[in-house]
Write a protein that binds this DNA or RNA. Structure first.
Lengths: 205, 205
DNA sequence: TCATAATATGAATAAACGTTCATGTTGATA
DNA sequence: TATCAACATGAACGTTTATTCATATTATGA
């Protein structure tokens, strides 16, 4: 039996408090970052007593871990929802990229909270991306078997694609407003390069 | 006249103390991260009195800013040194990638300190990457003019290439040991994909 | 040699922090 | 309505934190 650093409430009323603390935590982590947010801040924001926080969470890290796990699922689900209609690898990459950036834009805590884990507990960060890469590799292998993807180092390709999504995501996130048209334009640019490479071929090849 | 949050010493002896504090700061930021390191930690590590720290630095952030600026130059210089012999864009990308990863591996504080800035002061992070992207765009435009690079969205391509370097770098950094051969192999994989794309072309195209 | 600017000290202060726990309240069930 | 587990409280405690400042030391060149 494994125990979590948080405690799931047993009554409806408890759930309300629990959820409220989480909502306030998200809000503060999102605006100030994890490290800059104190337990006192969370207590003040949520209006509960100090002791109440510790009924549900061992400490600040426990709340962070809970929220992070939440987002892991949410990101996967969102991308899955947005790409399940895709019939080929090109569409899958395009829609996956758009889905990731859109998600990060709509709720930038999702983005921050995973990156920040690198400075809270490196193993959380490493686990997250290695797991993501592993799934990516499996998908790419399937697409390769179906003749859609070239025979390359799939692990490196996975990390390349994650890097592209994250940094192109950043580029977009630095803008004030992001429209669906911009998202399409950026995704098209990326896919064009993933399709034809970045270099001009010598004439006649 | 602009003032820095740090104070350059005026004697040889002062420089010794100044440099020693910086070295200890680097060591601690590198192992524990910026946020987890307190001024007290730096004082204890360096063996100077509390007041001495404040002779040279306004606060912890000032020391961080100093180190960050140092690394900015160092990264640029290192990549420049390692790529100045390159005669074409392919070589430039390949050697630049290897240089970046090698640098990050040898001194992973350089890597951490820039990423962590996202959670210390977003504008530092944004400035750094937007500046880097801008230089990248200029370089790509030149290579395009010389017929080496296809006509694509250079800004998006810049962010893609930065994302690739950063994440493929991470992938490599997660390993315990990194050899020059591995670096070559990974760089070749990346360049192969940047050259030919990731997708298989339909037969006859 | 003396004057003085630069450098160094570390006890002291106050604010912020995480966490505990004795006490109180609630609501469902028997 | 009596009981009891779940939930909630917030004053209180000990710790860590950043920062100051009166005092001391050092090195140099006038």
């Amino acid at each position: 039996m494994t125990t979590t650093p948080w405690r799931i409430p047993k009554t409806k009323h408890g759930h309300k408090t629990f959820d409220h603390i989480i909502a306030c935590g998200k809000k503060l982590f999102s605006s100030k970052g994890f490290q800059a947010t104190s337990v006192n801040d969370i207590i003040a924001e949520s209006g509960v007593a100090a002791g109440t926080f510790y009924i549900y969470f061992n400490d600040k890290l426990a709340l962070y871990t809970y929220i992070l796990n939440d987002y892991k699922k949410k990101i996967r689900d969102t991308i899955h929802q947005d790409t399940k209609h895709c019939l080929n690898r090109r569409d899958l990459e395009r829609e996956g990229l758009k889905s990731f950036i859109r998600f990060a834009y709509q709720d930038n805590l999702a983005y921050n909270i995973i990156w920040e884990s690198l400075f809270i507990d490196k193993s959380i960060f490493q686990d997250y991306y290695e797991n993501f890469a592993q799934r990516y590799v499996e998908g790419l292998k399937k697409s390769h078997a179906q003749g859609e993807v070239r025979d390359v180092d799939f692990e490196t390709l996975s990390w390349m694609l994650m890097g592209i999504a994250n940094f192109v995501g950043l580029q977009v996130l630095f803008r004030v407003h992001v429209t669906e048209e911009e998202l399409d334009r950026v995704a098209d640019s990326v896919l064009d390069i993933l399709e034809h490479g970045m270099f001009k071929r010598p004439i006649g090849s």
